[in-house]
Design a binder for these strands. Sequence first.
DNA 1: GCTCATTTGTTACAGGGCGTTACAAAAAGC
DNA 2: GCTTTTTGTAACGCCCTGTAACAAATGAGC
Lengths: 242, 242
Amino acid sequence: MSTTSPHILVVDDDREIRDLVARHLKKHGFRVDVASGGVEMKEAVLRSRLDLIILDRVMPGEDGLTLCRNLRASSNIPVILLTLLGSDTDRIVGLEVGADDYLPKPFNPEELVARIRAVLRRAQALPTNKSAKIERVLSFAGWTLDCRARRLTSPDGVVVTLTDGEFELLRALAERPGVILSRDELLDLTSGREPGLFDRSVDMQIMRLRRRLAAHNDANDIIKTIRQQGYIFAADVEEAEH
Amino acid sequence: MSTTSPHILVVDDDREIRDLVARHLKKHGFRVDVASGGVEMKEAVLRSRLDLIILDRVMPGEDGLTLCRNLRASSNIPVILLTLLGSDTDRIVGLEVGADDYLPKPFNPEELVARIRAVLRRAQALPTNKSAKIERVLSFAGWTLDCRARRLTSPDGVVVTLTDGEFELLRALAERPGVILSRDELLDLTSGREPGLFDRSVDMQIMRLRRRLAAHNDANDIIKTIRQQGYIFAADVEEAEH
DNA sequence: GCTCATTTGTTACAGGGCGTTACAAAAAGC
DNA sequence: GCTTTTTGTAACGCCCTGTAACAAATGAGC
C-alpha cells in the first residue's frame, strides 16, 4: 500500500462531479475507480484493495450515510463524505456514522486532495480490511511466517510445526510489531473469545510459542512481556505479499 | 490508556474561545488542558501523555502552522487546526503541513467534538500509544536504548536487562533530556497511574535504575535529582530512527 | 558552627504478576 | 470406540514492585 500510489474509489451519482473528481485525483497521482453506488460499489470494495472511498451523501439508490455505516461494520477503510447538505447537524451525523471527513459541496478540488492526504496519513498504518485479511509472508529476525500456508520457517531453514493456536498468536503479534497487546486483545485476536475472569490461556500459549521458537534458534526473545499490560513483539517485521 | 478518557490540549490565545472549547469538551468526557502557545505548550506536549492537540492557526507568538510542522517532526500526535481564515488555500496549507483536520471559525462545538472523535478513531487504532513518537534508538554517554527491542546496551557493549518499569522510566527521561519531570509526571508517563498521596514508587524505580546503570559503568550519574521538583536527564541524547 | 524540618536515598518486606510444571478436559485422527 | 494432540486449569515459586521504616542529605534559621 505504501509502495504504490493509493487507490481511491469515487462514488457519486452525478456523473459530471464524479468524473471531474476522478480526473483531478488522477492528476495528483492517485489510482481512481468510479462507481455510481449500490451493489456495484460493494463489489468494488470487496474485490479490489482500496485505500479510500469518497462517497456522496445523497444518492437515489442507497444513501451515502447508510452505505458508510454498512461499510464500517466489516471494514475500517477510510471514507470521506461529500454533500450538498452543509448544515452543522448533517456534518455531525456524517462523522458520527464513521466517516473520516465530511466535505460540503461545492468544494475546492485541491482541498479534497489535501483532506485525502490527511486521512491517508493516519490510516496507512492500519490493516485495511477486517474481513478479508490479506494473506502475506512476514519475516523477522531470520524467521519466515507464511500466513497462507500457515507455516513457520526457522533462520536455518527448518520448517517448524505450530499448532493452530500458536500460529494465530504468532501472527497476531507479528502483524503488530512494537505494539503492546493486552491478554484480552490477544484472546480476541486469536480465538475471538471473551476474557473470562481467571483466564491464563494466553500466558500458556505464549509460553509454548516461546519454547518452540527457543528450541529451533532464537537467542534474543522476540516476544517480550510487559508486566501489568501484556505482550509485545520486539523485532522488526518485513511484509511481503504473496 | 485506552481505559481512560482521551486527553486533549487546547492551544488558543483567545482566552474566551479557549475556555469555551475546554468546557464543551469536558462536558463530553474528555480530559482537557489549555495553553496559550509558545513555550508553555511545548512543555505540556513534552510532559504529559496527550491524545490530541487543538491549535489556533493564528497566534501572536509562534504561528499555529509552524507549531504544527514542528510537532510533526518529532511526534505523530493528532492535530486539529482552528482558524478565522477560511479561504481554500488556507485550509489546504494547514492540512499539508500535517494537521489531521482543519476547522474554520466560527464553528459549531458539536461539530468539533464529532471531528475530534473521527480523528481519534483513526489515531487510536494506530499501533502503540498515541503521543508516542516513532520507535527509535536513543544514545547517550555511550549507552544505547533500543526502544523497539526494549533493550539497553552499556558503553562497553554489554546488554543490560531492565525490568519493564525501569525501561519505561529510562525512556521517559531520555526522551526529554534537560526537562525537569515531576514525580507525578513520571508516574503518568511510565505507568499512566494517578499520583496517590504518599506515593514514592517513582523514587524507588529511580533508585533501582541508577543502581543498575552504576553496576555496569556510569561514573557521572545521568539522572539527577532536583530537590522539591523531580528528576532530570542530564546527558545529551542522540536519536536515530530504527 | 548547631538544630530541626523536610526531602530524598536505602533497606526490608509483603503482595501480586507471571513463568513453569503437572494434569485434566477437549478436540482431532484413526 | 481408542489414541494422540492440543488446549485450558491448578498449583508452585521466582521475580518485580510498591509500602513502610529508617538513614542520609539538604536547607533554613539561629
